[in-house]
C-alpha cells in the first residue's frame, strides 16, 4: 500500500481522474505520414479515451503506471496465440466474469483495426 513520495507528489501535480495524466505520454492526434502499426498501437494504448492501459498496468516506458492488473511484458512468450490475447482485450469478462478491465472491443471503446494495431504493439513488449 506504500507509494513512493515521488508518486504521491506526481499525483498532486497531475491531478488525474481516470488517467488524465496519460496526456503527456499520449501520441499526437494526427499521426505522421509513415508510422508502423506497432507505433499506432502504442498511441491507441496510451490514448486515455481508448486503451489507457497504463491506468491499470505497468507497460513499456509509461510513467506512473497503475497496478490494478499485472505488468504487460513478454507478450509473445506468454501469448503465442494472438487470438487468445485479442479475446482478453476484446472482452476480459469472458475469462474473469467479474473483471474490472473494460471490454474494449465489445463496448466499442476502440475499433477492430485499432485493436489489431494495439496487438502489434503488445507483441513488441
Amino acid at each position: 500500500m506504500k507509494s513512493s513520495g515521488i508518486i504521491a507528489a506526481a499525483a498532486i501535480l497531475m491531478l488525474p481522474s481516470l488517467g488524465v495524466a496519460a496526456d503527456q505520454s499520449a501520441a499526437p492526434k494526427a499521426a505522421p505520414a509513415v508510422v508502423s502499426p506497432a507505433a499506432k498501437g502504442k498511441a491507441v494504448a496510451n490514448d486515455r479515451n481508448k486503451g489507457n492501459c497504463l491506468a491499470c498496468h505497468m507497460m513499456d516506458d509509461g510513467e506512473f503506471p497503475g497496478n490494478f492488473g499485472p505488468p504487460l511484458s513478454q507478450m509473445k512468450e506468454r501469448y503465442p496465440d494472438r487470438a487468445v490475447l485479442r479475446k482478453q482485450i476484446w472482452d476480459a469478462t469472458v475469462k474473469n466474469p467479474t473483471s474490472i478491465m473494460p471490454p474494449f472491443g465489445k463496448h466499442g471503446i476502440m475499433s477492430e483495426s485499432e485493436l489489431d494495431q494495439l496487438l502489434d504493439y503488445l507483441y513488441t513488449l
Binding site: I7, M14, L18, G19, P65, G66, N67, F68, I100
Partner: peptide, 19 residues
Amino acid sequence: LNMSCSGCHMEYAGRHLRA
C-alpha cells in the same frame, strides 16, 4: 468502461489507478 463503484473503491481500494 463497465465498472462499478465497488470495483474501484472496494476490490481495488489502496491500489494505483495511474497516479
